[in-house]
């Protein structure tokens, strides 16, 4: 699920770069092929999410991501102070940063999809809309690129979180330290 989304997203970003950055465009060429890859990877990016909705565990994670508690405000304040100590950054299974990222990127993907479709199917909307959609698509693409790079950097900095994504298991000590409220949350849910 995460891997398929990530693969589609990276393909979308890579093809976008090949279409957009002149030096890369010059290197890659093959414009019709790159455009087709970009369109389809973009269109399919939300597909794993939609399929995931069939899974109760995935829906439970979405509920966790959606719910912001008092501890999340504490976490965000600590993040703003650059305070890295685990005590001042209380978190359940997902910390406040992950929650903000998840909902921001979900919204951004939908906006990219909508503006992308307006550019793809030019007859759907009037011309002024298409030019405006291009404008939003271009600038939001830049923001998405930067934010996704940040997301990847965060993951690279935390091997245990990566192991969790890969295997579904994390060390108890790491979970106690980085996601102290998780255990309580699990018993609450049960």
């Amino acid at each position: 699920m995460h891997r398929t989304t990530a693969a589609l997203m990276l393909l979308c970003i890579a093809t976008a770069a090949a279409l957009y950055v002149p030096q890369l465009a010059e290197l890659v060429g093959r414009r019709p092929l790159v455009v087709t890859l970009h369109q389809w990877s973009g269109l399919l990016t939300p597909a794993p999410f939609l399929l995931g909705l069939a899974s109760p565990a995935f829906r439970a994670d979405l509920r966790r991501l959606n719910r912001f508690g008092a501890h999340d405000r504490t976490w965000l304040r600590a993040a703003r102070r650059r305070d890295r100590s685990p005590e001042s950054r209380p978190a359940g299974k997902f910390n406040a940063g992950q929650k903000v990222y998840a909902s921001w990127i979900a919204g951004a993907v939908l906006v990219m999809l909508a503006t992308g479709l307006m550019m793809w199917f030019t007859s759907l909307t009037p011309l002024v809309w298409r030019t405006s959609a291009t404008f939003v698509h271009d600038w939001l693409a830049l923001a998405v690129g930067i934010v996704v790079a940040g997301h990847v950097a965060k993951a690279l900095a935390d091997p245990e979180a990566r192991r969790g994504m890969r295997t579904g298991w994390v060390e108890r000590g790491w979970a106690r330290r980085e996601h102290a409220l998780w255990a309580a949350d699990e018993t609450d849910d049960a």
């Binding site: 959606n66 929650k99 921001w104």
Partner: peptide
């Protein structure tokens, strides 16, 4: 709250257009 961020992104996108 997460939903609100998603919706505000959609709002911003529409406003941007």
């Amino acid at each position: 709250m997460g939903r609100r961020i998603v919706l505000s992104m959609l709002g911003l996108g529409a406003a941007g257009v």
